[in-house]
Amino acid sequence: MAKSEGFLERHHFLLRRLHSLTGVVPIGMFLMVHLTTNASIVWGRINGHDGLEGADAAVATFQHEVNFIHSLPALILIEIFGLWLPIAFHSVLGVIYATSSKPNNDRYAYQDNWRYTLQRISGYVGVLFIFYHVATLRWGWSFLIPGGTEWSAEYAASTMAAALQGSTDGFRLGGLLVSAFYMVGVSLLVFHLANGLWTAAISWGLTVSESAQKRWGQVCFVIGVGLMLAAWSAVLGFATLDAASAREVETNMLEKAAAADGDGAAPEHAASHDEDSDHTGG
């Protein structure tokens, strides 16, 4: 422990700046893409997809997006080095740094000071949320999901909806809790990102004057509002999705894909997917 403190001190500035940097790139960038993708469960309804309309189009759009991600080569390496390690780095250092905080909002109830405290709270909650999110949906720790549904990349929307609802056929109490946790989690993470973009610009010295800080703050606010809308649409979109009819759309897409490949084994592959060890899911 003493050794690691020495390391932290010796490389303090570099680690601090990397901490700030990883928050923006890749984590912040990823979050923006991720939320936009997931929000397709709402904007997909408006756009339509492949002749489908309404919720079906949204399910298909989302599935299409997921399929694209899963078609990336060496996805697991991208995930480990582009996401999980940066997130782990940002989280661990963030928690260490946040322990030096002595919030004093009772005495100095300025808006900036509240954002300071919320940045730390959102960091703590965000770490828990991301862990839960990735563990349950990516690492298959389905015992943490009420109803035990395991997320599947081929049945992306329906399994997501089931995870949020606590069952494959409508809301259960456990599902309500999970959905609420998602709402809180993503909201705090979006705040954390938007506010983090604002503070990062100060830390790096991009915005020096008070007016520049104010202007950039307005930009960050707009970014935050946009992402917040995307995040809420995604959570609410999946939480209110009819899992059974979504699964029908997804099955159809799998069959179509199999037909296009000219290989009759495709449905079988899809059916057997749930039992496979899931190393290509998203």
Binding site: L8, E9, H12, F13, R16, R17, S100, S101, N104, Y108, Y110, D112, N113, R115, Y116, T117, Q119, R120, W198, T199, I202, S203
Partner: peptide
């Protein structure tokens, strides 16, 4: 260093 500028948390109470 470890007590330097990057310890600022941008609460901005100071200026107020």
């Amino acid at each position: 260093g470890p007590d330097g500028v990057s310890e600022c948390g941008n609460a901005q109470n100071c200026v107020k």
